[in-house]
């Protein structure tokens, strides 16, 4: 079927084509730029530490380990069991500390408090500290993200 009138002029058509081409060119330039500025950083699936280092911990104390570029805490509970946390405040990402006398985690940046189970109990933190899965296998202490097999 032939239209009686064209929907746009030849000039409009060519301008659209040219503009579209320029746009596509820009996107193809921008894509690598954006890829470049976001480096691939993934937190580790798991870290394996020698259990020997943690064997002699006193109950109700923590020991720091490297969870990627963040600190993690291995905590020995009063009953002798071990837990692992990401030692970073859920409010605005400051590193927390453990105060054994009060049995609480504390973030100095904006006065955030967590109880000994990592539950947020005071100040601005919106969520509990992140727990990690901790498995003791012979000589090894294996710390995993949740959901990793």
């Amino acid at each position: 079927m032939k239209l009686k009138y064209s929907l746009f002029t030849r000039r409009q058509f060519l301008n659209g084509l040219f503009g579209g081409w320029l746009g596509a060119l820009m996107v193809s330039f921008l894509y690598p730029v954006i890829k470049f500025v976001f480096p691939p950083t993934r937190e580790p699936d798991q870290v394996i530490l020698p259990f020997l280092d943690f064997k002699d911990m006193k109950p109700n104390s923590v020991k720091v380990f490297s969870w990627g570029s963040k600190p993690g805490f291995v905590k020995k509970n009063k009953n002798g069991s071990y837990w692992a946390f990401v030692a970073v405040c859920t409010h605005l990402d400051c590193n927390v500390t453990y105060i054994p006398e009060q049995r609480k985690f504390f973030c100095a940046c904006h006065d955030g408090w967590y109880d000994e189970n990592g539950t947020n109990i005071g100040g601005p933190p919106p969520r509990p500290l992140r727990r990690l899965i901790l498995i003791i296998e012979g000589e090894d202490l294996i710390i995993k993200r949740e959901g990793v097999k």
Partner: peptide
């Protein structure tokens, strides 16, 4: 990078008003 935040941290004086707001706002 692994050490806990030191006590008494604060930003430069011109961000203090924001810092205080973040501190007092509830979760």
């Amino acid at each position: 990078l692994m050490a806990p935040a030191p006590e008494g941290i604060r930003p430069e004086w011109y961000f203090l008003f924001l810092f205080q707001a973040l501190k007092i706002f509830p979760a």
